[in-house]
Structures are given as C-alpha cells and as structure tokens.
C-alpha cells in the first residue's frame, strides 16, 4: 500500500472529527428538557389547553408559526380558527407569549437542548421576566 502511514493518519483525524459530538458529551448531564407552563395566565385558564392539542404543538409548532406568519403578514388574515372551532388572534407577542410569558423556561429550554436558534426574537419582543416575580411580571402588560 502506497503512503499507508499517511492514509491511516488521515483516517484517524477523520474519525476524531466525526466522533467529536460523542466524546464531547461524555460525563455531561443529559436531562430531557421539561418546558414549564406554570405562568399566571395559564393558571387562570379553566382548561389548560393551547390552540391545538399538546402533541401537535410539540411536533409542529414551528410549522404552525410559519403558517400564522404568512397568513397575518402576507394574506392579512389575522384570525386563526383552530381545529376545535375556537378563534385566536394571530400574534406571537400578543397571543402565544401572553400565556407563555416564561420564554426562558418554555421556549429556550428545548431550543437550547436541541441547539436550534430560531431568529424570532431578533425582532419579536420577548416578555419581560427573570428578576421580577411572575405575578408582577404579568402587570407589565
């Protein structure tokens, strides 16, 4: 085999790169993220239900948000009629985040875990939270 040593060396470097995610995570706590929904607004709801069923929202919320966005911005249709017939005003800041006022515990939990960085918050204003107690935070709106 010509250049056998060089080839083996190359393969080793390649393997080191490819397996990086595995050995990089060794020893790190790998807890499944549990997004919290205990905001004052949600506590007040008679029935703790999002616009669509939980399983759907979990898997498809990004697609739903894209559809909401196009519907409101491009078609001017700002009311969403859910599968159960209920109507919602389409607005990330004024509808979604009014209930889910705990972006850090709700959105960021999973997004950080999955290493996704949606650019929603470059423009959309996240609810004020953190230092202020949840009850006071609600008064901001």
């Amino acid at each position: 085999m010509y250049d056998g040593g060089k080839i083996l060396f190359g393969i080793l470097i390649f393997l080191a790169f490819v397996t990086f995610p595995f050995y990089n995570d060794i020893g790190k706590a790998n807890v499944k993220p549990e997004p919290k929904i205990d905001t004052p607004e949600i506590q007040k709801l008679p029935q703790k239900k999002c616009v669509e069923p939980k399983a759907f929202m979990k898997a498809e919320h990004m697609k739903l948000l894209n559809e909401w966005r196009d519907s409101a911005v491009r078609d001017g249709n700002r009311v969403y009629v859910a599968s159960d017939g209920k109507r919602y005003i389409i607005s990330l800041q004024n509808t979604c985040m009014r209930c889910h006022s705990n972006k850090k515990e709700f959105c960021d939990k999973c997004h950080n875990y999955a290493e996704v960085n949606p650019y929603c918050w470059d423009c959309h204003i996240a609810p004020k939270e953190a230092k202020i107690a949840p009850k006071e935070a609600k008064n901001e709106y």
Binding site: E52, F56, E60, K63, L64, E67, S71, D75, G76, N77, R78, V79, Y80, V81, A82, S83, D84, I89, I90
Partner: peptide
C-alpha cells in the same frame, strides 16, 4: 403538513 380543520380569516 396542513392542519385539516384549521383555517384563517380576517378579524
């Protein structure tokens, strides 16, 4: 992946 029952309308 369209939601079958859902739809959009103006306010």
């Amino acid at each position: 992946d369209n939601l079958e029952a859902s739809q959009f309308s103006p306010e």
